[in-house]
């Protein structure tokens, strides 16, 4: 019962913060609202008993990526004067395009049915022991491929960070 209330509370918070990201004028405020959105989503992970995912979500997104965003935006010092002015035609076409996307989404979701899952759900699948066993047995190849992708990104970042490339 209490988890249901928590779910609605967290969903409300997540949606509110997510819309605040778009609605605030100040880019720093947008970043901070996005961090709060990540917290609400991490709360959802905890409700699903996926504590590992929640912790990693906070560490990676709120703790690392958003800090770098904040760095860049703070150093650029964006404010109203430096904001690029868009023409009225651009604004109008953006409204039309996103409005029709919303119509499509509403139309698609209206026809959708709720699917009853047939296979039984293991409530402890999100705990770290089970997650590790699954990752290193069933999904070993995709996991290793993802690690190679990360390694390549890391090498690329180091190359870009070098002062002079011979």
């Amino acid at each position: 019962m209490i988890t249901e209330y928590l779910f609605y509370l967290l969903s409300f918070l997540a949606l509110m913060f997510a819309s605040m990201v778009v609605l605030t004028k100040n880019p720093i405020h947008s970043v901070l609202y996005l961090v709060l959105t990540f917290f609400a989503i991490a709360g959802h992970y905890v409700l699903l008993n996926a504590q590992f995912l929640a912790a990693v979500h906070i560490i990676v997104y709120a703790g690392a990526i958003m800090v770098l965003f904040l760095f860049v935006i703070m150093l650029l010092n964006l404010n109203k004067e430096t904001e690029a002015h868009k023409s009225i035609w651009l604004k109008g076409s953006a409204v039309v395009a996103s409005g029709s996307l919303m119509v499509v989404l509403v139309g698609a979701l209206k026809g959708a049915e709720t699917i009853q899952t047939t296979n039984t759900f293991n409530a402890n699948i999100g705990l770290i022991e089970n997650l590790g066993m699954t990752l290193f047995n069933e999904f070993l190849l995709p996991f290793e491929l993802a690690s190679i992708l990360l390694l390549a990104a890391m090498v690329g970042a180091v190359m870009l960070g070098k002062k002079s490339i011979k």
């Binding site: 990693v56 906070i58 560490i59 709120a62 703790g63 770290i128």
Partner: peptide
């Protein structure tokens, strides 16, 4: 059961107050 990860999560948030 993820105590250490919790520790790192809080640690990585410590940056925000200062920034």
């Amino acid at each position: 059961n993820i105590g250490i990860l919790y520790l790192f999560g809080v640690l990585s948030l410590g940056v925000y107050g200062i920034m």
